[in-house]
């Protein structure tokens, strides 16, 4: 598996998309820092970009990379390698390469502006770790969808729909439910629903760390009470990890049975 990972990573390190993605975060972070000269505000601004963009890029690149690697995968399948290693290697290669672009793109300007001498290191770590987790989650979902659909257009369509649903539509539905049933106590329901959406969960995790949960009103207090504890925090991270593990096992399961 490590060899497949090595060659996938090597392949991606020569792709201009990897560098475009890195450059985007470099310019964005650098630009924000340059204009505001405020590390704390920059992290808040970055949060919104990270929550939308890392899932989107994970989804798009995941599907694109899978369909583009078909030749490579066919070649690997005829070699004495188990299918699990082939697909896990490809998946980790892409997730790690995207995560590396993202982390370097944010970390380098932050270090340059002296993040280490402020008390904001933990905030940045939370931002970057959720971004990395979201990259792994959505790349796994994209792989699962791509392996399920032989036809690239259908695969792309389904992958983008899942992204749209989790990043946008889900919140809309949740909001509607909250408005319709506003006379009922819904804070625990809201908390539960948040756990089922990795994007929302990541948002809440970052907001709690940044201490802007007061913006969320009474529900914010419930979130704070639950996620502010170390148990809540562990549950939140465990949930995000589950969001990686389940799609990965599902696509490995499909890969094992697929005809190539």
């Amino acid at each position: 598996m490590l060899k497949v990972l090595k060659y996938s990573f090597y392949d991606l390190s020569r792709s201009r998309w990897t560098y475009a993605y890195l450059l985007f975060f470099l310019l964005l972070t650098f630009g924000l820092l340059n204009f505001s000269h405020d590390l704390s505000k920059t992290i808040i601004s970055l949060m919104n970009v990270v929550l939308i963009l890392t899932p989107l890029i994970g989804t798009l690149f995941g599907a694109l990379y899978y369909y583009n690697s078909k030749e490579f995968i066919d070649l690997l399948l005829a070699l004495p390698l188990p299918r699990r290693s082939i697909f896990l290697g490809k998946y980790l290669g892409l997730s790690l390469s995207l995560s590396a672009s993202f982390v370097i793109g944010i970390l380098a300007p932050m270090l340059l502006f002296g993040i280490l001498s402020t008390g904001l290191v933990l905030n940045l770590v939370i931002l970057m770790s959720t971004g990395v987790l979201l990259t792994f989650i959505f790349t796994a979902i994209a792989f699962l969808v791509s392996i399920r659909f032989e036809h690239p257009i259908r695969g792309f369509g389904a992958a983008i729909f899942i992204w749209l649903f989790l990043a946008v539509i889900y919140d809309g539905i949740l909001l509607l439910i909250l408005i319709w049933f506003e006379h009922y106590p819904l804070d625990h329901f809201a908390l539960l629903m948040t756990l089922f959406n990795p994007v929302d969960l990541s948002r809440v995790l970052i907001m709690l760390q940044l201490d802007i949960s007061a913006l969320m009103g009474y529900t914010g207090a419930v979130f704070r009470k639950f996620l502010g504890t170390s148990l809540g925090m562990s549950i939140a991270y465990a949930t995000l990890l589950t969001w990686i593990i389940v799609p990965v096992f599902a696509f490995l399961w499909l890969a094992r049975r697929k005809d190539f």
């Binding site: 078909k70 066919d74 070649l75 005829a78 299918r83």
Partner: peptide, 22 residues
């Protein structure tokens, strides 16, 4: 079955030569 090690003993030539193009 789902074994893979036996492929060590096989030289395979696929019908359509599809390679990583770059």
């Amino acid at each position: 079955g789902h074994d893979y090690l036996y492929r060590k003993d096989i030289g395979y030539l696929p019908q359509i030569a599809r390679f990583p193009e770059n």
